[in-house]
Design a protein around this nucleic acid. Structure first.
Lengths: 223, 223
DNA sequence: GCCGTTTCGATATTCTTTTATCGGTATAAA
DNA sequence: TTTATACCGATAAAAGAATATCGAAACGGC
């Protein structure tokens, strides 16, 4: 039967795939050729069943007693994530954050290349990562000609919405939003949010819970 | 009764608190004094019940028909997250990422101040964010004297484990890890991971799913 | 002063995610 | 050839989180 399994992978599973992939790359560099999900689970502190389910959801298939072929599993995961053939992205925002993103070495490994840098107010002659910083007015034209689908939004919060709408209008289909703001650009555009404050909230609350043995003070004054 | 409710807040709830807080700050700037969780929910695309539960878990209490006092709710959330009194943090790693973090304007708003910058191999005379870049050898001494509890780890992956262990050994109780590596430093140290690859995985898969209407090819060849 | 409306607070249900269990298969050793 | 072992795959149970429903309280209008 040709029934495509419509059960999409869950977001938590999806977020774990890069962890597997990273471990696989490490092991591949060490010369290993076979892996079992038990090893993956032990190394990452997960349950082995969970790892198996994640890999299965990504389309990987292993063999009993043998495990998975490392090279094949790596390729399957990379293909599933779309990290196998280099995708091109525009960076919008040439401030400190944008500069850090350009310098981040991890993009190339995930098949992502920043091919142009834009800014709402580019300083004349400014260069970021060896590329000229272009004004936003050129974004739509270049996006159409270069067939770029992904935009990285790294402008301050007060400019994020307008800039995001401009990016969506330019035809970008996915926006990786680093601004601390919920972008709502309609169903046509996939927006993924990176919010440091959320991560910090978890950390600082757990840190605070270390000091206060029980939960934070709940009106500790006696009546 | 003095029974402290031991039911800890869930991580998803915890991660939503900064979103509420951000909205509250915006509304406060607009002069509003009362908020209802219905408004919060509508603006964020959540369910109102969920917002109420989150706020209740943080210790906030409102009044029927009135809602929550904006100022009070903001203070409660900030206190719950430990963002009310300025905490001090060490930044370890003076590379591009570290420089971006120093320049990030959001830390101060969350009660976090980077008071010193370290690096495994500081360039002589290097300055980051107006502060001298110190060698790691000075970390333990300074951490003890300044009573700093939190460290931001922003070194390359291959140095992350050793550096993290050094930070733990210096007495830091929380580590915000920006290196693409799972740090396991024992139960004494709270480690919160920031992994861009996880976020990118969600984005690129959803982007890939846009092109391929159904899930990625699952041996589409007929037998 | 009464009533309708709005909103909090608590409970219940449904859904998702995680964890546990069982059966089957392929390899290697005896 | 037989047997033991390690591992995948599928199913089932448990835990957790999101959503829906109901009652109670307070303000504004009548």
């Amino acid at each position: 039967m040709l029934v495509a399994m419509t059960t999409s992978i869950s977001v938590p599973s999806l977020r774990r795939l890069p962890l597997y992939l990273r471990l696989l790359e490490t092991w591949r560099a060490e010369g290993r050729t076979q892996v079992s999900c038990t090893h993956l689970a032990d190394d990452l502190g997960f349950d082995s069943t969970q790892v198996r389910k994640d890999l299965a959801a990504a389309g990987a298939t292993g063999r009993p007693k043998i495990g998975y072929d490392l090279q094949e599993l790596r390729d399957v995961l990379r293909r599933f994530l779309g990290w196998d053939n280099p995708g091109e992205a525009f960076l919008v925002g040439a401030g400190p954050l944008g500069q850090a993103l350009v310098a981040y070495e991890g993009f190339a490994a995930r098949g992502l290349a920043i091919v142009a840098v834009f800014d709402p107010a580019p300083a004349p002659g400014a260069m970021v990562g060896g590329k000229p910083v272009l004004p936003l007015t050129k974004l739509k034209d270049l996006a159409g000609r270069m067939h770029v689908r992904l935009g990285i939004l790294a402008v301050p919060a007060d400019q994020a919405l307008a800039t995001g709408q401009l990016m969506a209008g330019a035809g970008l289909q996915g926006i990786w939003n680093f601004a601390p703001l919920r972008l709502d650009l309609g169903a046509q555009v996939v927006v993924e949010q990176v919010d440091l404050a959320q991560s910090l909230a978890v950390l600082s609350h757990r840190l605070a819970s270390l000091s206060n043995p029980s939960d934070p003070p709940k009106s500790p004054e006696p009546p």
